[in-house]
């Protein structure tokens, strides 16, 4: 019963967040200094073309009328037209979204797979040398600038050692199993760039909460009952320590998407982020605006998934 209420509340919150994102972009684009026509058409047009564009896109109508028209189009999945490719923005971006989802999704999964054992290791050896190393690496890791890290990996592992391809997402002309192998091969460097850039925050958060949990009375009780320390750590303390980490995953997804934009730029990875980079160079505003709306939607959905996971992990939500 309560779980449905919780999910409903989260769903509404997600919808509000998305509505806010859409509204903010709409008004930013139109109220900021700069020609609103630029948001729908190529820069450097003649005055005559500008006027027709104003009319064609309804930019001469009152702002609120435009706003509701924009929302109506959005609900139907219409994000405008990329003037550069003369293609609907939604089509341009939807071709690329799967790559971004693959990249960010695998990075998130790998971060958790690596982050949990590392956090446990540091917490259970608090103040030992493993912990010291984890803490120092953690501070440096949190300070890494994603493009710097990407360039470093690309230069060393991709160029000097030649272990990995340095750009693109897949070799053309492959089918079947070798296609998927090539996809995986191209994925490794960008994925690791993102993992290394965000691993530190997870490990440090998990370490801090786990140390706190291990000092709690229920852990003492478990030990007093004769439970092995390993079981106390993995069964009792970790379950509770994972809750703040789950919250962090939700909070960090926005950062992850930003990192993906930078990473895709470096590795010429054909995702939404690379589309943003190309659109910046060409001042293709419809694509920029559509990409933000699409990424915001992705983040909102990912957050919703984390919230649902949280609901299942935390018995207090169910109670």
């Amino acid at each position: 019963m309560h779980l449905t209420g919780y999910f409903l509340q989260r769903l509404i919150r997600g919808l509000v967040t998305f509505w806010f994102a859409v509204t903010v972009t709409f008004f930013l684009v139109r109220l900021l200094p700069g020609d609103p026509v630029l948001a729908v058409a190529a820069p450097g047009m003649t005055e005559e073309i500008r006027q027709t564009q104003l009319q064609q896109f309804g930019l001469d109508r009152p702002l609120l009328v435009q706003y509701f028209a924009y929302l109506r189009e959005l609900v139907q999945g219409n994000l405008g037209v990329s003037f550069l490719r003369s293609q609907p923005v939604s089509q341009v971006l939807m071709e690329r979204l799967p790559w971004t989802l693959l990249l960010t999704g695998s990075a998130l999964l790998l971060t958790v797979i690596l982050g949990v054992p590392l956090g446990v290791l540091a917490a259970t050896r608090a103040r030992g040398w493993v912990d010291q190393v984890v803490q120092i690496t953690g501070v440096v890791g949190q300070s890494l600038f994603v493009p710097s890290l990407g360039i470093l990996l690309l230069y060393t592992l991709g160029l000097m050692l030649g272990w990995f391809p340095i750009g693109g997402a897949v070799k053309s002309g492959l089918t079947g199993f070798s296609y998927y192998l090539s996809v995986l091969h191209h994925l490794i460097l960008p994925c690791f760039t993102l993992v290394l850039a965000q691993l530190a925050s997870y490990v440090l958060t998990l370490r801090a909460t786990l140390i706190e949990a291990l000092g709690e009375e229920y852990c003492d009780l478990a030990r007093a009952k004769g439970t092995r320390e390993n079981k106390v750590i993995w069964k009792h303390a970790l379950r509770n320590a994972l809750l703040p980490t789950t919250t962090l995953i939700g909070l960090q997804i926005g950062f992850l998407v930003g990192g993906a934009v930078l990473t895709e730029t470096i590795y010429a990875y054909p995702g939404v982020g690379r589309a943003i980079y190309e659109a910046v160079g060409q001042l293709d505003f419809p694509v920029l605006q559509g990409a933000f709306v699409l990424l915001a939607a992705t983040v909102v959905i990912a957050n919703l998934v984390t919230d649902i996971a949280y609901g299942f992990l935390d018995p207090r939500v169910r109670a």
Partner: peptide, 9 residues
């Protein structure tokens, strides 16, 4: 909750 970098861009 929003992806800030694309918005800044």
């Amino acid at each position: 909750a929003l992806p800030v970098l694309p918005l800044m861009i």
